[in-house]
């Protein structure tokens, strides 16, 4: 069983390297989107965390803001951490891509873009993956309405 790391402990460690990037460290570690790439690379490459496996990328629409969620695991230490970031711009939410860190994020970030509409800056192929080109809107947004065919 993968042991969950305490977000507060990880936040304390992060403070040493990246001061004032942690927004919240309750159930999960929430960081500023501008620092997401640096924090993700640190969590992957530091020997203490060594989170080399990105389990899942998803996003939640809280109406006020979008929360992009990353589940990170370490194969070596068999521990995991939930990393989140919040973006408040509803018209054009942009989060840095982590494809350069975990190539497996490629399709999952495209799916998040497809269904929730969060763009990932630096993604090599940022387009829809499930729905077709020309589909109106992003259907997993809470305010999404569509006309019954």
């Amino acid at each position: 069983m993968t042991a969950p790391l305490l977000p507060a402990d990880v936040a304390a460690k992060l403070e040493e390297h990246f001061p004032a990037v942690v927004v919240e460290a309750g159930d999960a570690l929430v960081v500023e989107p501008a620092w997401l790439g640096d924090v993700a690379r640190f969590l992957k490459e530091s020997p203490q965390f060594s989170c080399d496996y990105l389990v899942h990328v998803t996003a939640v629409d809280y109406m006020d803001y979008f929360e992009v969620v990353y589940y990170l695991n370490s194969i070596e230490h068999n521990h995991g951490i939930t990393l989140k970031t919040r973006v408040w711009d509803r018209d054009d939410p942009v989060v840095p891509s982590v494809v350069s860190i975990w190539p497996g994020a490629d399709f999952q970030e495209r799916e998040v873009y497809d269904l929730v509409g969060v763009r990932f800056a630096g993604h090599p192929n940022m387009k829809r993956v499930l729905l077709w080109e020309g589909f109106p809107g992003h259907p997993l947004r809470k305010d999404y309405l569509w006309e019954q065919v």
Binding site: L130, L131, F135, P139, W146, Q148, V149
Partner: peptide, 12 residues
């Protein structure tokens, strides 16, 4: 049938 992604019947 009410999904945005599903065709409501092959007879469409």
């Amino acid at each position: 049938a009410s999904s945005y992604a599903v065709c409501p019947g092959a007879n469409r």
